[in-house]
Design a protein around this nucleic acid. Sequence first.
DNA 1: GATAATTGTTATGGACCATATCAAATATCG
DNA 2: CGATATTTGATATGGTCCATAACAATTATC
Lengths: 169, 169
Amino acid sequence: MTVSKAVEKSGEATRSRKDAGDSPAEALHLGELSEQLGYVLKRAQLKVFENFLRCVASLQLTPAQFSVLLLVEQNPGRNQTEIASTLGILRPNFVAMLDNLESRDLCARIRSTNDRRSHILVLTDKGKAVLTRAKKLVATKHEARLNELLGAANRDALIAMLSKIANEF
Amino acid sequence: MTVSKAVEKSGEATRSRKDAGDSPAEALHLGELSEQLGYVLKRAQLKVFENFLRCVASLQLTPAQFSVLLLVEQNPGRNQTEIASTLGILRPNFVAMLDNLESRDLCARIRSTNDRRSHILVLTDKGKAVLTRAKKLVATKHEARLNELLGAANRDALIAMLSKIANEF
DNA sequence: GATAATTGTTATGGACCATATCAAATATCG
DNA sequence: CGATATTTGATATGGTCCATAACAATTATC
């Protein structure tokens, strides 16, 4: 079948031109797309990041920055390579990120005395304070919204399944 | 507490320098990160996209391109703006995407006779054939892997929760 | 002690995303 | 009707994120 014939078979001629009778321009059918894991996953991720940004807007933290602060707090004495790699961030790209956090006095690089190539990462006092406030905001606004939407049990099941996918897919 | 004092309290001095006794450089603790919805969601999404790309590598289709083909097939007679916006793609960015698909003869733009501003999108015969093959690959390789990992019931529950998040968060 | 590997860094290019702007076509309204 | 506004596809452009190569300083290996 040619393209020109295909267009005749489509419902185009009857609907376009701003819907002659002012009918409400019906929404498109997602079809199999709404069952595609990747599609639904991506859209959910965008919404969650968007919501996260709003919830911690007062602290000016992105999800990635939040994850760095959390990981540095949880793992004192680690260097840039270690922190970056466990977050899936490539070392070159981690440099600008740290420059940012350091310029805002949220964390600091400290030359290691054992291996003078590496920089040990530490949270500053301000960084600890900001992280504490961020955790609170995330818990009371962000995660609370999720529980409200799914219920605690479903939330746990969701996280478990996503972790499984992230680790074993 | 100052930064210099903080580093003394960290476990740095005892572990760095390639772990004196060749001990296996213990993995970092994710801590609260493994419970963060956004973190786990993002990592799962990356893995799923990665797997998708491998599964349909023979057809050279990205998840975004696959979604365009699916949506065009499901909604004949729609124009660029309609297809792009339901996929969350901005019109300017959709142009290059279509240029690509059209240059590969997978879909075609057809000037609408009703509204000569708009381009109706249609799958070519080759586009239909490729989409059919892609669906088969996705079903037998990609989605099958998901079922194997979670089971059909859990898979459905996961998709449902992600849809809910994507639509109502 | 010569060579290899590691760490942080810079430079660079690609992919994706967002905004402003434009010409052509159409819609709206006096 | 005709002037003005809106819509559509397109271009240009800038930002962010991601990936690779290369480099100097330092350390490991042989």
